[in-house]
Amino acid sequence: MTIDWQAFTPWTSLLGGALIGLAAAAFVLLNGRIAGISGIVGGLLTPKKGDTGWRMAFMGGMITAPLLWLLVSSLPVIRIDASYPVLVVAGLVVGISTRFGAGCTSGHGVCGISRLSLRSLIATAAFMLSGFLTVFIIRHLLGGL
């Protein structure tokens, strides 16, 4: 294994991570809820009275973040190499499986591990493992998609 020292951003990643933790902290302490994005989004598809507004507000905040950023500085690079067909398949798979698995990187990876939940620890290990394997297969066995 070789570390990509040019790409590695320890300090901004640590700081950004702490901000994500702060957001999850504020949300659970103020609203009593888990900041799990797949759950927040997925819950919109079975709308219940009084259960939609906060989901829209949270998602609205996330979508507004780059706009707020633009008031201060230019946006960091967002590079999406995947082709449109791959993005469609990836989106479908992420949508179905995060609902079956009851969470994604935020709900299980950040909030669940912070709660010391064994379920979330196993879920995180599982999606990390299959994520590593998928990228290995695509990049090193298939030579890219």
Binding site: A82, A90, S97, G101, A126, G131, F132, T134
Partner: peptide, 13 residues
């Protein structure tokens, strides 16, 4: 299985 599937979709894009 859901988490394993999520990792596949995550790794795709």
């Amino acid at each position: 299985l859901g988490s394993l599937g999520f990792g596949v979709g995550w790794g795709l894009a």
